[in-house]
Every structure is written in C-alpha cells, then in structure tokens.
C-alpha cells in the first residue's frame, strides 16, 4: 500500500537559499504526522509543495500515490489546506465564504447548503454565520479557514501552524476538531513550532531543521534519543549543591548538567520508575541535604529539540559548522 504522504529528496531553492535541502518524509494513512521546527526550517515550504502550490526543484513527492507535479489535479481532489495565514475572504460572511468554496469544489446546490450548515454548527460559527468575516476574532477566522478546507471531507489535511497566535481556548477547540477528524480516518500533516502541540496531537513527529528532517519517531522515541528520565531536585540551600551531587552520584546519577544554577539541580537518572525517587530521597536525607522538592521528569520535546539542533525552539536557527548561510526566507514564500 502507498503511504498517504511520501516525500523523497525534495529540494526547493529560493534564490541562493535552499528552503528544502533533500527532505524525506513518510506519513501513514489515518495518522497525524507532526512537523516540528523553528521559523524558517522549511515546514511551510514542504506543505506548499504537497498542496501543489509549489513545484520542487528536485526529488519527488506524492499524496495517496499521486505525484504532486504530474498528477496535481488529482491530488487537489484529495487534500484540504488550512493554516496560519487564514485564507478567509474578509468581505464575505462566514456562510458566503463556505458557499463560495463549496461551489468551487463543484458541490451541487443542496449538498453544498447542507454541508455548509453542518460545518457552521460544528465549528460554533452559526451565530456569526451572516456577519462579514472581518468582524471575526482570530480564533473564529481560523475555524472558518479550517471549515473551508473540510467541505469535501478530504482524506489528507494539511494544517500549517493551525494554532499559532491563538488563545488557549481557541487552540483547544482546534485540537479537538483535529482529533475528531483523525478518528474519522483523515490523515493529517501538521506543522508546528509548539512542542506541546506535537506531543498532544501527533502520532509521529519529524523534526525539521534547515530544510531537512533531522530526527523522526514517536514523541517517546525522540525523547529516548535524548536520554531517559531526569531527577529534578530543588535544594533548600544552594550551598549544599555539591553534597547533593555527590550523594546522587553514588546512586549512579552522572554529574549535574551544565546550565544548572542555584537551588535547581537536574541530573540524569540511571533508571526509570518510582523507586528512583525513593532512592534519591533516601540518599539526600542520609547526606543531610535539605530538599524542598524532588521529582522524576521525562525529557520534553523541548529537550529533544535543544539536543538535536543546539537551538531553543523559539530562537531562529543558525547553521551548524560547514553549512551555508542561514535561510531566512524559507518559511515565508507566501
């Protein structure tokens, strides 16, 4: 069986910049694949290639086995696209927006009217349906945008940073809809800068940096690449830090991580489980170290990202040694 989405060695240049630099990707049908990366990593560019908006310079990409260049028209029948730049028509009302796109999707009059009402209700837009979209809040626009992309119940849905800039309530609404869609069998390719979002929604996560996938797996697999659990200790007194490190060292915890300061001490744990917390508590008590908080923490995707790219997720990426200049334009060809 063909993968729902298959990308092989895709290169896309914008002038001297390589927005995509040999990107490979496979998404299984009916699952959510999260593309995680900083601004300018190439996430939007690959979505635009897959949505037939941009032809790749090299490599090939297919959706449900259909080539995005030579079979673009067939691809367009299977996909929905929604994103950070909500493509709603501000001068039309919500209902008119959906009717327009339903017509352009070549749905018949009655079918279109029924589907439009259904989507307005599902996205909590019925009350605002006959107001121009320019009066909508950011969350409402994003919901209308998402509704517009779902008119034909596409098998593949591209969500380009669907919650960027949204308040938590609107974000949760979008997340809930995405989960419902996946239950109904839709394949979702989701790009995000938010590790939390990838953690919440995606079955698999591909970490993208500088136009390439640099790591791929389930959230847990990625976290395991960074290492196991960490013991997190908050000391009553920063002066007892060394004593605490020595005591935990006897349990097999390696030295403290760089960057630890003051009363917060984070060391890798030799094994998982509640027993570890008890052992650490006993060792610290024996050494006479005062502790105000003690816990075992799995690494977050933030840690993964830091480990893989040497970058915090919210900072612009700078190239590792031997690379060409940083790509600034990649995320924003629109």
């Amino acid at each position: 069986m063909d993968a729902a989405i298959q990308v092989e060695g895709v290169v896309k240049r914008f002038g001297p910049t390589r927005a995509l630099d040999g990107l490979d990707l496979v998404a299984a049908e009916g699952r959510v694949l999260g593309l995680l990366g900083p601004n300018g990593a190439g996430k939007t560019t690959i979505v635009r290639v897959l949505a037939t908006l941009l032809e790749p310079d090299e490599g090939r990409a297919s959706v449900l086995g259909l080539d995005v260049v030579s079979q673009a028209r067939a691809v367009r029948r299977e996909i929905g696209l929604a994103g950070q730049f909500a493509a709603v028509d501000e001068l039309l009302t919500g209902r008119e927006n959906l009717r327009l796109f339903a017509g352009l999707f070549r749905m018949g009059g009655r079918e279109a009217r029924g589907r439009v009402d259904e989507l307005l209700e599902r996205f909590d837009l019925l009350d605002a349906a006959d107001r121009p979209a320019k009066t909508y809040s950011g969350g409402m626009r994003r919901r209308l945008d998402l509704a517009s992309s779902l008119l034909t119940s596409p098998r593949i849905l591209f969500l380009d940073e669907p919650t960027t800039g949204l308040d938590p309530r609107s974000r949760n609404q979008i997340w809930a809809v995405v989960r419902e869609l996946v239950e109904e069998g839709t394949t979702v390719l989701l790009t995000t800068q938010y590790l939390e979002e990838a953690d919440h929604l995606a079955h698999r996560v591909a970490v993208v940096d500088q136009g390439r996938v640099i790591a791929e797996g389930t959230g847990d697999e990625l976290k395991d690449q960074v290492g196991g659990a960490m013991v997190h200790v908050r000391l009553s007194d920063a002066g007892e830090r060394d004593a605490a490190v020595v005591a935990l060292g006897r349990l097999g915890c390696a030295g403290a991580q760089p960057g630890d300061v003051g009363t917060d001490l984070i060391v890798p744990a030799p094994h998982d489980g509640v027993g570890m917390v008890a052992e650490a508590a006993a060792a610290l008590r024996e050494a006479g170290v005062g502790v105000s908080d003690l816990g075992l923490r799995r690494p977050t995707l933030d840690d993964v990202f830091l480990e893989l790219t040497g970058q915090k997720t919210d900072e612009p990426a700078s190239p590792p040694e031997g690379e060409e200049e940083p790509e600034a334009a990649a995320g924003a060809p629109a």
Binding site: A51, T52, L53, R73, R76, R77, I79, L81, G83, F85, A86, A87, V88, D89, E90, F101, L104, F105, R106, S148, S149, A334
Partner: peptide
C-alpha cells in the same frame, strides 16, 4: 491574503 492560495490548492479551473 492567501485566498488565491486556497483556490490554487483546489480542483477548480486555473483560469477562474
């Protein structure tokens, strides 16, 4: 505004 992007991703006429 991105409206054209949506239209280009749809199976509609390229001239419309």
């Amino acid at each position: 505004r991105g409206v054209v992007d949506r239209m280009r991703s749809m199976p509609m006429s390229r001239a419309a």
